[in-house]
């Protein structure tokens, strides 16, 4: 009889333990959801509690009345990131975590292009980097094809293709041989971002001046100044005239105006005149009174 009672007591204890294990509080979370999608957090163990979902980009708090599932409708969590989940009850606290991933459809491009103005004919002179974002402003980290195009003033187009790596892609392009504004475009699907690149003439190709006496002065005038592709050098580009004579030197900086630069300098016997612009040195003229 004693043995039977002992066995019965043991069985009751085991049953009670099993019931206790069955009621152990658990928290079931999705491993990952797509930004903006609906999701469920399930908990067991019964009783009221408070659920916190915490991340640097979003924070949510829900009062939970009973055991079961807590439903979060679409657009509850839309910022991609790693979220900690904390569920507190009178009996204790449980925690876990899950990720919110960006949606795969691109919605916005952030396009860095440089420079906005450069000389013509510069190899790899134009660079661009693009970051791809979804509708919630999350960086899309999945590989995404990007195309780049640079149109030149003459109508020519340079193209490049790339696939994003961790949300970004980049390219390098050459400035063209013709001055003018070009469109630099980054495109993902139908999504475009455009920048204007102004291509200006490079350094003068050659510099030649003529001299003519004007009373007690010499008038110096350049021939029209052009780059090596034949583009006119912009007005305002500085041309430097230098007169060297016995006992002295005079230097005058003159801006180009309508392709030419001109200046009048005092006449000294035996003077030599030189002309330069940037790194380009022009001809030299000697003058005898």
């Amino acid at each position: 009889m004693k043995a039977i009672l002992t066995l019965l007591a043991a069985s009751l204890l085991l049953a009670k333990l099993q019931a206790a294990w069955a009621q152990e509080e658990t928290l079931r979370l999705p491993k990952s959801i797509e930004a903006g999608s609906a999701f469920l957090i399930e908990h067991s163990g019964g009783g009221e509690g408070t659920l916190y979902i915490v991340g640097p980009s979003q924070v949510l708090k829900r009062d939970v009345k009973a055991e079961g599932a807590v439903y979060f409708p679409a657009r509850s969590l839309y910022d991609a990131g790693h979220y900690n989940v904390i569920f507190t009850q009178a009996s204790g606290t449980k925690s876990g975590s899950f990720d919110v991933a960006p949606i795969s459809a691109p919605d916005k491009l952030s396009f860095f292009a440089n420079p906005s103005r450069l000389p013509i004919g510069v190899k790899h002179g134009i660079t661009g980097a693009v970051y791809v974002f979804d509708a919630y402003g999350n960086l899309i980290t999945a590989p995404t094809p990007v195309s780049f195009e640079l149109s030149s003033p003459s109508g020519g187009i340079q193209k490049d293709r790339a696939t994003t790596s961790i949300g970004r892609a980049w390219t390098e392009m050459d400035s063209t041989s013709q001055q003018g504004s070009g469109k630099f475009v980054a495109q993902v699907g139908e999504l475009k971002s455009e920048r204007i690149i102004r291509q200006v003439p490079g350094d003068p190709c050659t510099l030649k001046m003529n001299a003519q006496q004007a009373g007690q002065q010499v008038q110096l005038q350049t021939e029209p100044v052009r780059d090596c592709s034949g583009n006119a050098i912009p007005d305002g580009t500085i041309v430097t005239f230098t007169e060297t004579y016995a006992g002295g030197q005079s230097t005058v900086d003159v801006p180009l105006k309508r392709d030419v630069a001109e200046v009048k300098l005092p006449l000294h016997s035996g003077a030599k005149f030189t002309v330069a612009s940037g790194v380009v040195l022009g001809n030299q003229i000697g003058w005898q009174k």
Binding site: T26, L29, H82, K94, G96, D99
Partner: peptide, 15 residues
């Protein structure tokens, strides 16, 4: 400008 946790490499103590 952008600070976003990626799903790769994350691990937090679960329940």
């Amino acid at each position: 400008r952008v600070m976003q946790a990626d799903s790769q490499g994350n691990r937090s103590p679960g329940t």
